[in-house]
Amino acid sequence: MILLDLCPSVKNILLLDSEGKRVAAKYFSDDWPTNNSKEAFEKTVFTKTQKTNARTEADIIMFENNIVVYKFVQDLHFYVTGGEDENELILATVLQGFFDAVGILLRGNVDKKEALENLDLILMCLDEVVDGGIVLETDANSIAGKVASHGIDSGAPLSEQTISQALATAREHFTRSLLR
């Protein structure tokens, strides 16, 4: 990661439940080499942010030379971590993109149960947001579109999709037919 110093980079993305347990997590930096160190970090993040109210707007905290932006919904806690010199607003954009994309993919029912039942979508979503620490996509509709267009439920009738999702799918089909 030494050469990436100028490029905005994300150290990890976490999705924890209301007790601080990991639902899904992706680490891109070597700062936490073992699972124990990862869990310790998650525990610290969780306890430090537990009492805050990050439900309407994303909140932010800085500790151990990291900046963490986070947002909660129901019993799910979303976190994005970056280095202390990272532009806070870039991290917040990544968080918002991931948060909204999950919202679209879970069709508004964003809670732990739904997330675990659709863990494949969540993991693909993580994969589409950041690649090896580099921001891949921040637009929630594009992220969800990339995941949903070949998700397991892609056969579901259009009526069940949210409008934005339907739009994303339509755009997807449109561009594909154009490029052919």
């Binding site: 707007e57 909140d59 800085m62 532009n87 806070e88 917040a92």
Partner: peptide
């Protein structure tokens, strides 16, 4: 700003 992230970034 109403956004904590923005306030934090600015004050820092």
């Amino acid at each position: 700003s109403s956004k904590p992230v923005l306030r934090f970034a600015a004050v820092r």
